[in-house]
Each structure stands twice: as C-alpha cells, then as structure tokens.
Design a protein around this nucleic acid. Structure first.
Ligand SMILES: [Zn+2]
Ligand SMILES: [Zn+2]
Lengths: 370, 370
DNA sequence: CGACAAGTTG
DNA sequence: CAACTTGTCG
C-alpha cells in the first residue's frame, strides 16, 4: 500500500482510486510497520481520497516522543541534504468520525468561508476551533497534531516558519522552541515540536479533552504577507491530525488559513473573484467555472446580485432566501458538517436583514422575527 | 551661544534669527569647549539657520575614537535612562564650502528630487554621492560622518535601526557592528559606530580622499516601509557632517531619503501631490451613499446581494425574483407608465439568467424558458 | 510600467 | 470601513 514514486501520474491515480477502498481506516495505521531507518532512507507515498501527496522536509513522525535531536549524526546529515518524507495529506474522518469546525459568528475578528474551507484572521486574535470526536471514551487519550503547511504543491515541501520580525519580537514569555511557530494553541498542555535550526517541520500536539466536542483556541503570529523567509504571501493550510498516544493517525482534516489585516475584505475578494464580476449598470456576470471550482460548486457559498424594486420586493427576496436555507438545514438532519455551509449562508442573510432593519426607521418596511 | 531650553519658542527663534549672524562659521566650532561631562550632564542647543534642534538619544560625539563602551558605569546608566543630547541639525557649508551632490541620470535605479532635496532609491542598489570640499589640502585628513535620522520632530530623537528581518538577513559577510545600520558605504575604510543593544545612535565615518570632489557609493538595507522596530514608514534623512580628525564639525548637509520599491513613482507622487494636495486622506470629501447593502440602479431599482449555495439555490432565487416582477407587471394592467420600472427589472434579471446559462455547460444547472 | 495586493489610517 | 500607501507581478 505504499508507492515509491514521488508523484503519481493521473492514470495511476485513477487506477488506484478505482481499486482501493480508501475509506478503510486500517490503511492509515501503517506507522508501526515503518522503522526509523525506513523514514530516513525511503520515500513513502500513500494514496488517499482527495489525494495530495506532499514531500515533507525534515523530521515528521508519528510518535510524540520521537525527536530529531535523537538521530545519529549520519542520519542527520542525510536529512539535511535531501531527505524528504512523502506523507499523505488527504482528508479523512477515520474511525472517530473526526471533524474540525471553525466557530462562526458575524462580529468576530475572524471570518470563515465554508465555500473555500478557509479561515481569515487577524494576527494575534485567538480563534476558537471545535474538534468533534465520536465515541471519545474516557480510557483512551487522543491528541490533535497541528501542522501548518504551504498548500500549493510548489511550496508544500518547504517548512513554514515565522519571519525574523515576528520570531524576535514575539511575546516575551515565549519559550525558545515556540518562537518559530506561526500558530500556537492557548492550551497550556500543548507540546511544540521541531527545530527551525535543523530544518525541521514544525508542529504541535494538543491532548484532547475526553468529550465529543472540544474547543481549543489558536493564535497566529505572522501574517501571510510577512516577508521571506517567512510565509511571504504564499497560501497556507493547517493540517489537523487526530492521533492516539502512539502517534497513529486516526483522522485528518485540513483548513486553509489566511492571516491578514482585513479578514472580511480579503474573504469577500476571495469568494467573489472566482464568482461574479460586476459590469456597467451593476450587471452581474456569471463566473467562468474553473475546473476545480465546479467540483466543489455544490458546497460553495457565492454571492448573487439581483435587481429589486422597493423594500417589499427586497424583503420578499430576503425572506425567500432565508427560508431556502432553513429548509436545507432541516433536510441535513443531525449531520453537523453538512449543515455547516447552510448555517453560514443563513447567518449571512440574517446579517443582511439586520442591516436593513437597522437602517430603516419605518417599521412597515422592516422584516420582523429575524 | 548655547541655550538650555530644549525647545525654543517661536518668538525666541525669530529674535535670535534676527540678531545672530548665522553664517559665521566660528559659531559651529564649539566642540572643543565641551567636555565629556558636559555631554553627559547637560543639554545643549545651538541655533542655526534652517534651525532644527533635535535631541539625540545615546552617545553622539564629535571625536572618532570616543566610544560609548568607554563610559564609566554610572554615566552609562544615565545615558540609558533619559540622557538626551540636543545637537544642532541645521545645514551649513562651513569653511570648506562643504557640499553634497547626489549624482543624477535618467536611467539610474534611483531618483533625485532637487525640489525636495530627497533621494528615492531601491534597497541594495549603490547610490553614488559626491562630496565637494574646497581647498582640500593634502596635509589635512577630513572625514564625512553619515548619520541617518527620522526627520519629523516627533521621531527625530529615536535612533534609526534596521528591522529584524534585514538585521538577520543581511549579506553574510557583514560584521556584527554593521548589521543594524540602514545605510552603509562601499568604501572599505568606513568605520561604523554605535551599538543598538546600548541604544546608541548609529553613524559611520568615511575618510575623505584629498581631492575637491570625492565620490562615494552608499547602499541601503531597509525600506522606509520596513516594520517596527525598523523605519516603519517614517520619513528619514541622512545627515552628512564634514569633520576633522578631532571630530570638529566643519560643515553639515542633510539629504532626505526614501528607500522604496518604486523610486520614480514615489518621487512623482511626492512632487505632484504637494502641488494639488486637495485629495488627501484626512481631507473632507463629499461622502458617497453607503453602498453597503444596495446600490441605486435606476429610479427605484436597487441591487440586492444575497449569499446562495450552489446553482440550485441560485436558480431558485433568480426564478423567484423573475416571478415577482412578472406578478407586479400583471397587476399593473395596461398602465404602461407604471409597468416601466418592473419591465426594466425583469429585463435585468433575464440578462443575469442568460449569463449564467451561457457560462454553464451542464444543462442540469441551467434555467430553461427564459 | 500598469494593475493588483494588502497593511495602515482616521 | 473607505481610501490611501506601497510592495510585487506580469
Ligand atoms: Zn511575520
Ligand atoms: Zn528592513
């Protein structure tokens, strides 16, 4: 179940996708079979659904207590030259039905785009994220590993570090091993891994509280726009890996992240540029469906602009859209993840309605009960 | 000829300017009369034409070989607390008719504005500057001290250092004492002074070749836009001081500097906007209707933007809006005048629908019969 | 060199 | 939040 090639051809991919049961969680518990030597000398690539294989520089490992510093000197030198470990990157729920939910709300300093599965946040504001783990039993300690990565294939192998500015001007109470991490968790039990000086990829591990839904807060220390050798405007994602005490992977979810000064503006731009472009007289032109966009289109929240005549018609449209979301949400049943984008849309409509209600004195033109 | 007050009132200034011969070079050769103790314990202010007195933090001195590190411990502590030395900043030619000329040329990577006495340059391109010293005799060694300063009174006391990014990512052959200087001279005999760790003001001294006109090349290591604790977008000037071997000041010239990525553009803006300065940020401008939620289309027609999720919902909304117009039009009966705005809205919606139909391959997502 | 991207200001 | 500034890219 492992492939020597760094990158699979499209044909290989289709073949494998067609012949392998990618939802079989046993596929993802291979770490026990791989020795340290294997890690140092071979390249492993395991195909998952939504497959993306990424070569990770440095020491990325599945046991919490395995440290780069423990390597013998010669392994070290191999690592420093061109040791790359291809680690799978696809998302999967795994046996615990692992889910990662960004808390939303319209007046938070961060913004979440369900459409792009992307969070937009300021530097240094705590962002709460919920981890959902079904059947989280009191006798098993689970962990979430958090690894920021560049998410364009071109840069995915490069490790993400803080820019020197934010490395040397971070909070004064920061431990040296934390100073290069662009993201940290407020949870005091978080363990930080990786040493920039050795070229390690940085990540950290949070011990998960034993409830079905655990909220943790994260802070970011660099902007996406920070200069090289920092993020340097490249898109970044956070990989959340559910792990057991041995570092076995039990689930994986990705979250695109943009740390910037104007989360709302930037989110709106990201969402609208793939979508409509406005013309003269406010005409809305439909977007050209980019191949990638069309795949996920059904999950995509987009903006639609229509002409309305008078507050009555406007309110009719708003109420109608509101109710369309309400209906969809009901039809989702208890599937929280499926609800997510609709909840976001609903939130969005309600904000628009509230804005009009705020701005209009006459109660006749107001929509009530929102 | 020295004043105890840190800042002179406007009236004092005018009085002095009217009664003192400010072109008398003897006024500016006072350094021999001032002991180190005076420097440490008092604040001197000497008025010059184009007067600008500036309190300099740290150790700024007129002898090349006087070093902050040589201070006794107690003087040191005074310095670190609030010792500020008011040093004159005005330009004067002095006995050698000292002049500083920025070399110009239209296809250089830098730009010089004579109007603003300001040079605009890229980071890391050598800028040649000529120093003119009349009667530069072979038996007197002269020096030019180069001191970058913030030139707004509000920040002039702060020392100018590199931002951490450029401090730690400078050329690899840089000596530690050079790493914090935002400007350096290519001349290998340049001596760099000041220690950022001690809060010293940084400067350097170039021994002048013994000709009337000496060309030296300078390189800048930070942009004006570099983040705090770097320049942080504050305007900067370079003070060139002609000195003898004892550090006596024989002439002084200032040069405004902007290190940026687009020297030409920025120079043009600087030069033109002061002329037609009516549209600056702080200016009061007729405010536009807050087009936050809706924009006026025609008389009553407005734009409403709502979030939709997927083509189905989008089409539902479009169809609904279409039908709202249709209903209104019916209710207008034969009143063509009254129909008019609704017809217009209907037309508008149909255009939007057509655009989406055009752009979408899948017939499933298309609305038919429009 | 124009257009865009993205931090800052009031 | 709009407008401006200013680095970057094509
Ligand atoms: Zn940074
Ligand atoms: Zn800098």
């Amino acid at each position: 179940m492992s492939f020597q090639s760094e990158l699979l051809s499209k044909e290989d991919e289709s073949y494998i996708l067609a012949h392998v049961d990618l939802d079989d969680p046993s596929l993802f518990n291979l770490s026990d079979e791989i020795s340290i030597d294997d890690f140092q000398e071979q390249k492993y690539s395991l195909l998952l659904h939504n497959e993306q294989t990424v070569a990770l520089n440095g020491n990325y490992q599945n046991t919490h207590d395995y440290y780069p510093a423990d390597l013998p000197k010669e392994a070290e030198s191999i690592k420093l030259e061109d040791q790359k470990l291809n680690v799978t990157q696809g998302e999967f729920q795994g046996p615990y039905d692992f889910q990662v939910i960004v808390c939303t709300g319209s007046k938070n300093p961060w913004e979440y785009s369900a459409q792009l599965n992307k969070i937009y946040t300021d530097r240094k504001s705590p962002v709460p994220i919920d981890f959902i783990v079904k059947n989280n039993s009191p006798d098993t300690q689970l962990f979430v590993r958090v690894t920021p990565m560049f998410n364009s294939p071109q840069y995915a192998q490069d490790c993400v570090y803080r820019c020197p500015n934010h490395e040397f001007n971070g909070p004064s109470d920061e431990l040296p091993k934390e100073k290069c991490h662009i993201v940290k968790c407020l949870n005091k039990n978080t363990e930080y891994y990786g040493d920039k000086a050795k070229g390690d990829r940085l990540s950290f591990v949070i011990p998960l509280a034993r409830t079905d839904r655990v909220r943790e807060r994260f802070e970011f220390y660099c902007l996406n726009s920070c200069p090289a050798p920092g993020i340097n405007r490249k898109p970044v994602e956070i990989v959340f890996t559910l792990e057991d005490i041995h570092g076995n992977t039990l689930g994986r979810k990705n979250l695109n992240v943009r740390i910037c000064s104007c989360p709302r503006r930037d989110r709106e731009k990201d969402e609208n540029i793939p979508a409509a472009k406005s013309r003269k007289r406010g005409m809305i032109v439909a977007k050209k469906p980019s191949k990638k966009a069309s795949v996920v289109l059904s999950r995509n929240l987009q903006e639609l602009t229509v002409p309305v005549l008078g507050p009555q018609m406007r309110n009719n449209v708003l109420k109608y859209v509101h109710d369309l979301y309400a209906g969809e949400i009901l039809r989702c049943g208890d599937d929280i993840e499926k609800q997510q984008p609709y909840l976001q849309g609903l939130e969005s409509v309600k904000t628009i309605i509230a804005k009009f209600n705020d701005n209009e004195s006459s109660s006749i033109t107001q929509l009530s009960h929102f």
